[in-house]
Computed example of a mutant assay.
Amino acid sequence: MPLHLLPAPPAALRSVLAALRSPTAARHPGSAPAAPGGTHSRLQPELPLPLHEMTSFSRAAGSSATRLTGWRFLLREAEAPAGSFPPAAAESVLTPDGWAFGYFCGGPYVPSTRRALQQAESLTEDFQPRLLSVPQLYMLTLWLHGDTGADPAQGTPQPSDLLIPLAPAPPGIAAHRPHRVDALLPLLTRRAVPAPLMRTPA
């Protein structure tokens, strides 16, 4: 089914477009090289995805808390055919003063995001795609939210939502395999939240 991609905030998109024209925009190590002239002007943003970060786990409740940290745009060469794997991504971050360009990034998560989106398009259910970062586990997933009309800046993973871990995934977690949240979240919680120490009776 087609994914319900929502538009990014206009200010977030503008920050990325300005950075693509700038010779001094920040780049992470491993990101795509600048175009001739010192800019990324041959790259175009597409497929904006809200990026959420998992901020806490609750072992007792089997739940989690998340917050929106930015919007990530996959970038493609202007001459590249639609659907080709992107060479890089750009991120706009939310600051106290509004949306601002964060950085360009490359590495395996970029093509893995495009591959996961292609996987999601083959599913029979309708979803709103998001990205969900689990920094405690150095993990990034494509989060397929079942409420397609939800505000992309709000919400937490629901039990029936799907998570597709991007490659490289943590050991023991299969990348590019859709997992229901209620099946994967307990595993993530056990890894992220240390078990309480047993007390020796006095």
Rank of each mutant, 00 (worst) to 15 (best):
S84Q: 08
L188N: 04
V181Y: 02
A116I: 09
R72Q: 11
V193W: 12
D182H: 10
T24H: 15
Q128Y: 07
A26C: 07
H4M: 10
P96Q: 09
L137K: 00
E46Y: 14
A183S: 13
P9V: 05
Y109V: 01
V110T: 01
G146E: 09
S84D: 14
T200P: 08
L132Y: 12
W143G: 02
L47M: 10
G149Q: 13
A150G: 12
S64I: 03
R27F: 11
P86V: 04
M139G: 01
T141C: 15
F73T: 06
T156R: 01
A78L: 11
R76D: 10
W99V: 06
P36D: 15
R72N: 05
L5H: 06
L43D: 03
F85M: 08
P48V: 02
P178A: 15
P165R: 03
T156S: 05
M139N: 00
L74P: 02
V193E: 15
R42L: 13
E121V: 08
A195W: 00
T55F: 04
P87E: 15
L144I: 13
L75C: 01
S92W: 00
V181F: 02
P168N: 12
T39K: 02
Y109M: 08
H4I: 12
S133N: 03
V110M: 07
S63E: 13
S15G: 04
A100I: 00
R42S: 13
A60C: 04
P111K: 08
L197G: 05
L74W: 00
W143A: 03
G172L: 12
D97K: 10
P87A: 14
A116T: 11
T200G: 11
T55P: 04
L131F: 04
A175S: 14
G102C: 05
V110D: 07
F57H: 02
P96K: 03
P36C: 14
T124C: 11
M139A: 01
H179K: 05
V16I: 09
H40F: 13
L185Y: 07
P157F: 05
L94R: 14
I173V: 09
E91A: 03
D161A: 06
G172M: 12
R191W: 01
A167P: 00
L74K: 01
A150I: 02
A35M: 07
H28I: 02
G155F: 12
T55M: 05
A78K: 13
A19K: 10
H4C: 12
G62L: 08
Q118G: 15
Q128L: 15
L5D: 06
P23F: 07
H176S: 14
V193L: 13
L140F: 05
Y138P: 00
E125S: 11
A19W: 04
P9Q: 10
S133V: 06
P7C: 15
A32S: 09
D151W: 01
T55L: 06
T66S: 11
S112D: 08
P50F: 05
A35W: 00
A192Y: 04
L68A: 12
L187K: 09
Q44S: 07
S160K: 03
V110G: 08
L166H: 00
G98H: 05
R190T: 15
